[in-house]
Design a protein around this nucleic acid. Sequence first.
DNA 1: TTAAGTGCAAAGGGTTTGCACGGTC
DNA 2: GACCGTGCAAACCCTTTGCACTTAA
Lengths: 149, 149
Amino acid sequence: MRFKSDIATLCRDHGLRLTGPRRIIMKALAESIDHPDAVELHRRVTKIDPGIAIATVYRTLRLLEEKGVLERHVFGDGPARFESAEQEHHDHLIDMDTGDVIEFRSDEIERLQEEIARRHGFEIVSHRLEIYVRPLRQPRRAPRDERDR
Amino acid sequence: MRFKSDIATLCRDHGLRLTGPRRIIMKALAESIDHPDAVELHRRVTKIDPGIAIATVYRTLRLLEEKGVLERHVFGDGPARFESAEQEHHDHLIDMDTGDVIEFRSDEIERLQEEIARRHGFEIVSHRLEIYVRPLRQPRRAPRDERDR
DNA sequence: TTAAGTGCAAAGGGTTTGCACGGTC
DNA sequence: GACCGTGCAAACCCTTTGCACTTAA
């Protein structure tokens, strides 16, 4: 997860004290390449400092969300998952087999949404587009031992 | 909420017993023009029979969802809200001022989603598009019969 | 020094479930 | 008469919160 600036700067800029737990939690976020939920993140930080309470993880996540540093997503009926808000807007493909999240962006879809909202007399505050998917079976040649059956 | 058939038929077709609570809950659903959640639905049915437990409402909703009669939606981080699954697929505009839900459909967006999923090597299982909106100050409301396609 | 941050445990909201009783088929 | 459905209360999961203690600034 990429942030605009380093952790100390991020805290200073938002009026947050740079505490031990905070540093570890934000470092774990920065090193995440996925979209972890609070429990998973807590698992990661307690490997470094087992004393960190899950309440602190929840508080830090909420705080960073309020400051606009993180974005919160709820896929299906699962727990909230987080990603950096400091990147271009995008939507998500969710691989239902693995839970993996793939980011994508479609200007065309964005434009159509604007148009639909306007046509109904609204302006968009935010939106959420999630496509729940399964891997396509690759068309493949049958291996030798599967032929001629 | 419109169902394909009457309540008795709906139950029989899905192997469900037509009990008193069930009849009242399904009648309340049929008469709903909005997208109620379990608590709101419970409020409505207890006006007719105050003895109906909220657990029964939850069980009935889950059952009907599993049978493919209802669709479950979670808007924002609110409670699950339900609508008939026996209608054409559509997406939702959510008026953030009132909580009202407006249905819309865009074949163009559907097509683009298919394209995106395929390009990433996936097939779509389901998707969810929610546009959170606020009324424009000089609203130009779409006529009732105007379509998005 | 002192307000912000923390750990812990308890509480919260929405939803599900175990149990014994009651009603439908 | 089976067995499904129900009411009730307790349990559940994820998340927040009250409290007393600790710590960064």
